[in-house]
Write a protein that binds this DNA or RNA. Structure first.
Lengths: 161, 161
DNA sequence: TATTGTTATACTCTATAACTATA
DNA sequence: TATAGTTATAGAGTATAACAATA
């Protein structure tokens, strides 16, 4: 394994990030590594769109599930509520979401995507998709569709076809 | 999206962790989320084997690629060298790896897996595999093999069949 | 002069625990 | 009494920059 970085033609690189061969056949390691590589790359590139990965996630959730409370967002993202507060603050300042009080339960904030937020989401989707195409560059379009399907089914987002 | 956590039968949960529906059709978000869920779960469960996820990665790399320098490990894991030093310290204390000076270049440490390390890796592999089966519970064995193949090919670990 | 390993420091992110307001 | 949002604080993890040994 010596001089792996410089000399070894065996080194597996995606967009400048190494994928250890030891991860082959170890799905957990492989998916964890791909996840962090994707997160790092997307964070770099989304900066051009004025977003980070977490903000992108929030916009995507609001666009798909409709307006929701910050507690909901915290659960869906697996983070503490305080983390969401700060992110929604930033998004609201930039006009990408708005907070309104839930009339039925005035403790709750309803976070809603604005037209500007939807536009930012579209731009971020393009950046993210391009990044995935780079990281999974070995797949053609059909294989890529197959992969998306398998993941969605595997995780229970979509019922088995 | 209100009351998503308690009431909504639409909530997608894997092993207690939510997967946002907004991630469907957004491969980057989906893979990033699965990666962190997998990392969190594996870290919890590997504790029984006396390891954490990072240590598991190091053992897997050494087992597959053979002994290597700490710089190599840093590159393959995408972390700063200092992070690796601390981890190898811990692994060496527990007898799972040994450090020897590279005779050809005495600056280098050769980190080598011990038999005890190989045994710990086997145990960790079982924990990790079980965790993946849980997170990707919607897949049968054939679909799971297909997914592994697509990821390995996509990322360039394996040439397209 | 450059590189490996190592250590110390500063920074970022996060959970946790208060607190306010609503219920 | 319990919950949503908010804030402040402390802890973990990290990169960065320095240093010693070797090249």
């Amino acid at each position: 394994m010596s001089d792996l970085v410089d000399d070894d033609p065996d080194l597996c690189l995606v967009a400048g990030h190494a994928i250890p061969r030891g991860a082959e056949g170890r799905t957990a390691l492989l998916l964890a590594r791909i996840g962090t590589v994707l997160t790092d790359l997307a964070d770099e590139r989304l900066a051009a769109a004025g977003l980070d990965g977490r903000e992108y996630s929030i916009l995507a959730i609001l666009a798909t599930d409709g307006p929701g409370s910050q507690q909901d967002l915290a659960t869906l993202l697996g983070r503490a509520p305080g983390v969401i507060v700060a992110k929604v603050d930033g998004l609201e300042e930039r006009g990408l979401v708005v907070r309104t009080r839930d009339p039925g339960d005035r403790r709750r904030s309803r976070v809603t995507l604005t037209p500007a937020g939807a536009k930012a989401l579209t731009a971020a989707d393009e950046v993210a998709e391009q990044t995935v195409r780079e990281v999974l560059g070995g797949l053609d379009a059909a294989q890529r569709r197959q992969l998306d399907e398998l993941i969605a089914v595997g995780v229970g987002l979509r019922p088995a076809a």
